[in-house]
Write a protein that binds this DNA or RNA. Structure first.
Length: 477
RNA sequence: CGCGGGGUGGAGCAGUAGUAGCUCGUCAGGCUCAUAACCUGAAGGUCGCGGGUGCAAUUCCCGCCCCCGCAACCA
């Protein structure tokens, strides 16, 4: 039943802020897929990490009066807390300041250069001295830097390295002609349309004198890599590329199935630029990139000024890890944008977890504990296709919906068969029925494994030990 | 004519060429094993608007209106 080795990675969040629910969504969805694959018997390598270079991080560190190294260490730790809070099962946490990663980024650079895809060119940009950074035209407010409106924007020219993305137009179109390469399908159309428009070469370095916090460009003391060139390399550096002393790169990247998860704004980076970099460096391209939607809150983007920011660890603290994982799985469809509010979260929690799953476990296990002598684990074979098929297509919410359909059906069954009556009139038949119910509960718990690992364990334990569990999801009023 | 997504009962969403479903909320019953939980039933929608093709369209085609992202060196 087991398939090829499975490689899965999220994008790396930039460490200039606390983790927000958007990233929680990405990593929880990825975690669910990773756990599902393991459940199916596949060997999985699940990667995440932090993107720690770049101007913004350098500035944020200065603002907090910290050394950059100390600053990025602090944030790397925040993400460690997220691992516990969301019960994440990643196998590797790559930090782009990791020396081995730096070496890998430089190696990929060298290979792209050797392929003739890197050249020097003058770059002209709008530079704000206050920010010590280049800005985009669209960043400007009335032609001024929004952070430093009293400083004049300078048009500065510097010499940078460029990557010949334009060389890869045809190869990228060929790559994108494979319908497997992007999920959902309509995002692939978007990528194709973008490539067909014509591709421009990208600047991939900055003058060190202006931007020092980055990976040194091989063979040029005066330049550092522009963050994304370095950051994208993490997907292979985490596997030990290029040395690959442990053979993980070979096993998971070259011979395995390679899947990336990313936000819908990442198409250009993940499915176009990164793929071109891989082609240039002579490395296998990504098999599939899955693009998820964004979370809004109250119909708007989350922002501190609007006060509608939902902080994942805060939700975990109040409702518990599995409740948050559940909500992200079932009520945030994989590919679409979703609106998340505390009210909606609470409604879903009470309806589906407290009244649904939690109550079902209570009523069945109360009967079992009272009337059965001992519990047992059921004979299990596979999983229903209503469950596996959507998960294979990353339609996590559909699989979750199926599980909740089973929960509802079991509630109906209890009402209709009335084991609490039967056990009085015909104890043997009643016991048999109650036992059956515990077995069905067990199977529901088993399907919950990727979504809610701790709940799966709790239900398994309850059935086997024939003991009513502690209130799994207390009602919140 | 920039690209894409979406407009379905009070709210949030599924869905399909042929009696329009789910969750929450509302109303009325039932049950008592359970976390004032669970089950049954009811009210409530001309499936954004206007055309077209079909025996038949919410579902296919065309036009329009509205909302939301994106529009490249921002990870």
């Amino acid at each position: 039943m087991a398939g090829k080795p499975f490689y899965l990675t999220t994008t790396l969040p930039y460490v200039n802020a606390e983790p927000h629910i958007g990233f929680a969504l990405e990593i929880v969805h990825a975690d669910i897929i990773a756990r599902y694959k393991r459940l199916m018997g596949d060997e999985v390598f699940f990667n995440t990490g932090t993107d720690e270079h770049g101007q913004k991080i350098y500035q944020a560190a200065q603002k907090e009066g910290k050394a950059v190294e100390a600053y990025v260490d602090h944030y790397a730790q925040t993400f460690e807390i997220l691992k516990q809070g969301l019960d994440l099962s990643y196998d590797a946490f790559i930090r782009t300041t990791n020396p081995a990663h730096v070496v890998a980024a430089q190696e990929l650079w060298k290979r792209c250069a050797a392929a003739g895809d890197i050249y020097k060119k003058k770059y002209k940009g709008l530079y704000c001295v206050g920010d010590e950074a280049f800005l985009r035209e669209s960043d400007l407010v009335d032609g001024k830097c929004p952070n430093h409106p009293n400083m004049a924007i300078q048009e500065i020219e510097e010499e940078n390295y460029f990557f010949k993305l334009s060389n890869y137009q045809d190869k990228l179109l060929q790559y994108l002609s494979n319908p497997e390469v992007i999920l959902p399908a309509w995002r692939r159309e978007e990528a194709v349309a973008f490539v067909k428009q014509g591709l421009e070469d990208f600047s991939i370095s900055r003058e060190k004198s202006r931007m020092s916090w980055g990976v040194p460009v091989p063979g040029d003391e005066t330049q550092v890599m522009y963050v994304w060139f370095d950051a994208l390399t993490n997907y292979i550096s985490t596997l030990g590329w290029p040395e690959d002393t442990e053979g993980k790169f070979k096993k998971f990247w070259q011979e395995g199935e390679v899947v990336q998860v990313a936000g819908k704004d990442q198409i250009r980076f993940q499915s176009i630029i990164w793929q071109a970099m891989l082609m240039s460096g002579g490395v296998k391209t990504t098999d599939k990139v899955v693009y998820h939607g964004f979370i809004t809150s109250g119909g708007q983007k989350m922002s501190k000024s609007l006060g509608n920011v939902i902080e994942p660890l805060g939700l975990v603290k109040e409702y518990g890890t599995d409740a948050v994982r559940y909500f992200l799985a079932r009520h945030v469809p994989t590919f679409e944008d979703s609106d998340v509010t505390l009210e909606r979260f609470k409604t879903a929690y009470n309806a589906d977890l407290a009244n649904g799953l939690g109550n079902l476990a209570s009523r069945i296990m109360q009967l079992a504990q009272t009337h059965l002598d001992k519990g047992a684990r059921p004979e299990v074979s596979g999983f229903p296709k209503e469950y596996t098929e959507p998960l294979e297509k990353f339609e996590i919410y559909k699989a979750a919906e199926y599980v909740w359909q089973c929960i509802a059906e079991l509630d109906v069954k209890i009402t209709e068969t009335a084991p609490f009556k039967l056990v009085k009139s015909d104890p043997e038949a009643g016991k048999k029925l109650i036992f059956e119910l515990t077995q069905e509960l067990y199977l529901i718990g088993r399907m919950l494994n990727p979504f809610m690992p701790a709940t799966n364990e709790a239900i398994k334990k309850a059935v086997i030990e024939n003991k009513k569990p502690e209130n799994l999801f207390p009602r919140k009023d």
